[in-house]
């Protein structure tokens, strides 16, 4: 048994050699290296995704440490994306990780997503999520949306041309104010997002297209509501005039 097949031995019965090969040749963009982003990055890394590009312009603060699981006390003041890269290749030296310590906007996003197989939402605001949504639609790349607030979270998988886009589901963003966040909710939602990515990349299972999963950790309840593509959604047709709210 090679070192590689030994590393993935326990998941090969689930996805097969072919599925593992697909993961190892996949390229994934993680937008944001916060609570969701570090959970997403960790599980993509241990699953064996071949190339990860992780983007975040922020530096590590002490109040990040309740949920941003790749960082340690001595990392305070360091750039999140770079520290995340270092930790991820320690966890799995067989993958390649690229860190981009830069801002995500409509100008910068095009180059970031080009050549990627999937975009993972690890952002903490909807204005940047809409940037990711637009880029996903433009370049026809799946976009796995996740968000959290306290013990609540939501996930949906946006497949351009097949599912409603983020703006179809959430036409107006919630307030950009800082919200309470606890690490376990980031863990739950980030893990579901990676589950979605693995299923999409290996062609197995049913993904959350046209379905919004709403997690209520406070009550131990998960619900799914069906959502549909909106013919009048300006985002899908690229006619959205500007951010509102």
């Amino acid at each position: 048994m090679t070192d590689t097949s030994e590393r993935y031995q326990r998941q090969l019965p689930l996805i097969g050699e072919t599925g593992q090969e697909r993961l190892s040749t996949s390229r994934v963009l993680i937008a944001g290296a916060g609570g969701l982003g570090t959970t997403i990055a960790t599980f993509l890394t241990v699953a064996g995704i071949g190339f990860i590009r992780i983007v975040d312009e922020d530096t590590i603060e002490r109040n990040n440490l309740n949920r941003q699981i790749l960082y340690r006390e001595p990392d305070r003041g360091e750039r999140k994306a770079e520290i995340a890269r270092q930790r991820l290749v320690e966890i799995n030296p067989e993958i390649e990780v690229q860190a981009l310590c830069t801002h995500i906007d409509d100008q910068s996003i095009g180059g970031m997503v080009r050549g990627m197989d999937i975009i993972m939402d690890g952002m903490d605001n909807f204005s940047t999520r809409y940037v990711l949504n637009r880029a996903a639609l433009r370049q026809k790349i799946p976009f796995i949306h996740g968000a959290v607030n306290g013990f609540y979270g939501q996930v949906t998988s946006i497949i351009p041309g097949k599912s409603p886009c983020l703006r179809c589901i959430v036409p107006h963003p919630p307030s950009a104010d800082k919200v309470p966040i606890i690490g376990v909710t980031c863990g739950v939602i980030g893990s579901i997002q990676v589950t979605e990515a693995i299923k999409y990349l290996t062609g197995r299972g049913d993904i959350l297209t046209g379905r919004l999963l709403l997690w209520d950790g406070f009550r131990g309840d998960a619900a799914i509501i069906n959502v549909v593509n909106e013919p009048d959604c300006s985002e899908c047709t690229g006619e959205w005039a500007g951010e509102r709210g």
């Binding site: 944001g32 916060g34 609570g35 969701l36 982003g37 939402d121 690890g122 952002m123 903490d124 605001n125 909807f126 999520r129 996740g146 968000a147 959290v148 607030n149 306290g150 609540y152 979270g153 939501q154 179809c168 589901i169 959430v170 036409p171 107006h172 963003p173 919630p174 307030s175 950009a176 800082k178 919200v179 309470p180 966040i181 980031c186 709403l214 509501i225 909106e230 009048d232 959604c233």
Partner: peptide, 27 residues
Amino acid sequence: NIHFLDGLVTALQEGDVIAIFPPVGGG
């Protein structure tokens, strides 16, 4: 989303399912 329908004057029919949620935005 009723944003794409007729807002608050969107008519209801027997058997409709209404879901109401404030989306979460943190990460």
